[in-house]
């Protein structure tokens, strides 16, 4: 019996040891991926004014984190310098995992801006959601053209303290 208790203790300690490696330390700056290009930040509003101009080369953006993917941590929304505007940064599941508790902290992200062409149906859904959020009325028949949305696929992200 005593031997079994000792074995159980060893196993329990091993589990704790392994899990200890994996704890996410949330204090201080959190680094994901490579090095951010903090010396060359472009305002989100500048990018969103002419997003197609920024598709070819990597860009670096900065903003307060105002949204995080709750279950996978696979995206974050960064607030723009312009009111009501934000830009989503999105990674493949597991490539970077952004903590939900990072909301409200500042982040710098370097990566490529991607253009996603929506179908007309999807465009209506997105527009309806935006109108609902803004408290505006929305008539789906008023949308006749599909739109595109933009998101940053980051190669490096720093979440600042």
């Amino acid at each position: 019996m005593k031997i079994w208790i000792e074995k159980a203790k060893t196993i329990f300690c091993a589990v704790l040891l392994f899990s200890g490696f994996a704890f996410n330390v949330s204090a201080g700056t959190l680094h994901f991926g490579g090095e951010v290009n903090a010396g060359n930040i472009t305002k989100i509003s500048t990018i969103m004014n002419d997003p197609d101009d920024y598709l070819a080369t990597p860009v670096t953006i900065e903003g307060t984190i105002v949204g995080v993917c709750e279950k996978r941590g696979c995206w974050m929304s960064l607030a723009s310098d312009q009111r009501f505007q934000n830009l989503r940064i999105k990674v493949n599941d597991g490539d970077m995992v952004f903590p939900m508790t990072a909301k409200g902290r500042k982040a710098i992200a370097t990566g490529e801006l991607k253009k996603i062409e929506l179908t007309l149906e999807r465009t209506k859904t997105v527009m309806a959601h935006r109108a609902q959020k803004a408290g505006d009325d929305f008539d789906p028949s008023s949308v006749t053209e599909p739109m595109a949305i933009y998101q940053l696929n980051p190669s490096a992200v720093d979440i600042l303290e």
Partner: peptide, 14 residues
């Protein structure tokens, strides 16, 4: 930590 206007009627406080 921070605050943010996500829409003209919606204000967030972190």
């Amino acid at each position: 930590k921070a605050s943010y206007w996500s829409a003209k009627d919606e204000f967030k406080v972190f």
